[in-house]
């Protein structure tokens, strides 16, 4: 038996916050368990049949008591609810602007991760300490779940829909990465490592194209050495041209299709009058199933790319479209 772990690593800002709540709840649990156990044992002993303890004044019901012990769990519950909801909204909400964006593809039974500069890793993730990291995740087959206990972070990885989560690693080290949603035969082998590195070391790692690796590697894992590492955006640009997306989507809104410049993060009005925010999920859906959300003022004429693009190439396209900023000369005109 190798070592005994009783406490998990705490390696993200979120982990610190969650732990505080966790230990508060643990204290509540221990307190009430001991309280009930003590009362049960004490009553059982003192009022055992045949004991001489006075039974005078035993009641059948007491409204004040009932209200009292309804309010105690209610109050504790409400406090914990607010405390936890705040943290939850942060973790699953939008990340800070300087977040490092990593794309994650889950498939039976491996993790495939892509850095913005094109470095790809399997079952390993290298990230710098101190900088927020945003994961945009999708599954190629069944439901998986990206789980790094040291960060207290978990998010399901769904087929057909992007899910995001962000966190800020704090402590350099090597941490477990698990798939937490049962996904078939090799579920317990869909695991890997997250390496949190000092920023300087991380820069070195980036510069070497992911070759400089500290620490031992799990077999079969690692950066795909030798793969030409065009950045995600470059790969997406190539694909964009190859698929002739620019034939309809120009620098400005055209007759056939709206422009992609400055699209990301913008509010888009649809034909049916609803307004959606153009996030990764919207862009992905509009590529694969263009008719699901047709932009106001346009005809539903775009062909579907479903089945023609795998998740990886879709990601590249999404990354490229995200990178298209509004040209400076165009005046900011609100629609």
């Amino acid at each position: 038996m190798k070592g005994v772990a009783l406490l998990p690593d705490t390696a993200s800002t979120f982990a610190q916050q969650v732990d505080l709540l966790f230990w508060f709840l643990t204290a509540v649990t221990v307190f009430f368990t001991l309280l009930i156990a003590a009362l049960v044992l004490y009553f059982a002993y003192r009022y055992r049949r045949g004991s001489t303890a006075s039974r005078a004044g035993a009641k059948e019901t007491d409204l004040r008591l009932e209200i009292g012990w309804s309010m105690i769990p209610l109050t504790i519950g409400l406090i914990v609810f607010v405390w936890a909801a705040k943290l939850y909204a942060d973790a699953y909400g939008p990340p800070p602007d300087n977040a490092l964006e990593i794309f994650v593809i889950g498939k039976q039974w491996m993790w495939h991760l892509q850095h913005p500069n094109g470095i790809r890793e399997n079952n390993e993730l290298h990230i710098p300490a101190g900088r927020p990291v945003k994961l945009t995740m999708i599954s190629q087959d069944v439901i998986h779940s990206f789980f790094v206990p040291a960060f207290r972070i978990k998010r399901d990885v769904l087929p057909g829909k992007y899910n995001t989560v962000w966190f800020t690693p704090t402590k350099p080290g090597k941490y477990h990465l698990f798939c937490a949603e049962y996904c078939g035969t090799q579920h317990s082998r869909m695991i890997g490592w997250v390496y949190v590195m000092e920023p300087a070391e991380y820069e070195k790692w980036l510069a070497s194209g992911g070759e400089a690796r500290p620490g031992a590697l799990a077999s079969g894992a690692g950066t795909m050495a030798g793969v030409p590492t065009a950045s995600l955006v470059q790969a997406g640009e190539q694909l964009y041209k190859q698929l002739r997306c620019n034939a309809c989507h120009g620098a400005a809104d055209g007759q056939r299709g709206p422009s992609h410049y400055g699209l990301f993060g913008k509010k888009v009005k649809l034909r049916d009058g609803t307004v959606v925010v153009a996030d990764e999920a919207y862009i992905r859906e509009s590529i694969l199933r263009p008719l699901a959300k047709v932009v106001d003022g346009y005809e539903p004429i775009m062909p579907s790319y479903e089945g023609l693009l795998d998740e990886e190439r879709t990601l590249q396209l999404v990354a490229y479209i995200k990178s298209l900023k509004k040209p400076l000369q165009t005046a900011e005109v609100k629609p």
Binding site: V18, L21, L25, T29, W83, Y88
Partner: peptide, 15 residues
């Protein structure tokens, strides 16, 4: 309660 509480559930769900 640990699992009803949103933030701790992120960590403890499916464990």
């Amino acid at each position: 309660l640990f699992l009803a509480s949103l933030a701790t559930d992120i960590h403890l769900q499916d464990t």
